[in-house]
Design a protein around this nucleic acid. Structure first.
Lengths: 253, 253
DNA sequence: TAGTTCTGCGTATGGTCTACGCATAACAGC
DNA sequence: GCTGTTATGCGTAGACCATACGCAGAACTA
């Protein structure tokens, strides 16, 4: 119906376009000595080893034996590099759900896959995400999530909302867990001692008259025990999936 | 039972201790020309006006007509200042739930209160939170949330998990919303045009054979319409609360 | 009045990202 | 083969940033 208006969209950063396989190299000029994937891999290596804070342009360049400014021939800015790091950091999506899985089993597997990635690469949580997903792998994750809901009665918009809900939960849970780990490393405390220490600290600070409910939680010893983070994770995930199940039943019934 | 081991906890930053009203000023030396609250207020003012990225020690000092290094007599580091900014940025908690509210109404109000704060001060989302809450106001929010669940059959640990679940959801939703707003400002696009532009972009990038489910979502026009962010918010919140309700019924029955 | 202790803050160090420009390498066309 | 064009590699330099350190002087105690 409409005329071609394909250039109307927001301008995609150059490196992202080449991640989608668009944009070929012009035949002139000296052959490039590096490649965008090599740079991104090096940056991911640095982040894996020393955290996201260690990822500076000069550090990445050193990793490659190149000069700092050489990188700017390949990526437009550090933010662009970060975007690409997220793409390869997540890696390929877990794949579509198994045929015998219902939506709940599929989404559970989907959530665990992201959980696992974030457990292993907690620096992904520190990357300031600056917009909706546009890189190939990220949309791949989305696709796989959507397929889990294929057989359900939900509307397309509702499917999207459910995925947003779950991925947000996974990220949030991973953030809390990694904060405890990082905090314990910074304070030189055993990770298993972190929550108990926090409980004692809060107990020292609060006035039971002003914070009765919190005081009750402390008395129950909730904060003192170092419970399995995985239990915490499945608790929240099951709550959310229960909520989704209620919606699906309502739509179906 | 146990002997006094109150010094065993992790060392609290000096400025946080004085936020709790501990630690009094030594009587010697010249009278301080500033105060921690004044510094934090100035920093919050800068963040409100120009975003968190604009908050540098020199900028805050300029705001106060003071020298940069003068601030370090009051806060130990920039991270400490950020921690205090979060405390006053959130402001006082919404207060305990009204007596006539059931848990669901109470938590809904609680979630909306945080939602509102984050809508108004989106820079709070950019502060790298570095541990569990320890400032007075933050524990105040926690207290109010816990009180909403007072009459329920949930265990103390479960109450805590539910609050974590909700606050995580609120933060996540606010993050997405503010990203759209910031992205549209950066790209010079009308905020209402942001999602449609994103939809067109994704449509241009993906191969329908490789991304069938995503393609179906696009065809349904889900991404093109600029729907009310509040609708999206209540959708997810209702899903979560449905899940909590299912748990409460199970515990009760 | 002397001593102590704390404040304000100037200076300096080492880190960040990146704009700009130059020398050079590789190709296209004649 | 020569020349013009275009891309690359990268050195220099600028504009920021947090903050360690040390000194002058103010305000209190004795």
């Amino acid at each position: 119906m409409a005329a071609k208006t394909d250039d109307s969209g927001p301008v995609l950063p150059a490196a992202i376009e080449s991640a989608w396989g668009l944009r070929e190299r012009p035949p002139k000029g000296p052959r490039p000595g590096m490649s965008v994937p090599a740079i991104v891999d090096a940056a991911v290596r640095v982040a894996d080893a020393d955290g996201l804070a260690a990822v500076s342009m000069s550090r990445v360049a050193k990793e490659l034996g190149a000069a700092t400014m050489a990188l700017y021939r390949y990526v437009g800015s550090k933010d662009e590099l970060l975007m690409l790091m997220v793409d390869t950091g997540y890696g390929p999506s877990p794949g579509p759900p198994a045929p015998e899985d219902d939506w709940r089993a599929g989404l559970t597997r989907w959530a665990w896959a992201e959980h696992e990635v974030l457990r292993q690469r907690s620096w992904l949580l520190h990357v300031p995400i600056s917009g909706p997903p546009i890189t190939p792998q990220q949309l791949g994750w989305m696709e796989d999530g959507l397929r889990c809901l294929d057989g359900t009665t939900l509307g397309e918009g509702e499917k999207m909302s459910v995925l947003l809900l779950i991925t947000g939960y996974v990220r949030n849970e991973a953030t809390l867990t990694s904060q405890i780990a990082e905090g314990s490393r910074a304070a030189g405390v055993e990770p298993s001692e972190m929550m108990p220490a926090y409980g004692r600290l809060v107990a020292r600070l609060i006035d039971p008259a002003r914070f009765p409910a919190l005081h009750r939680v402390l008395n129950a010893g909730v904060l003192y025990q170092d419970d399995d983070p995985d239990d915490e994770f499945v608790f929240g995930l099951d709550r959310i999936l229960d909520g989704v199940e209620a919606l699906i039943r309502r739509r179906a019934g």
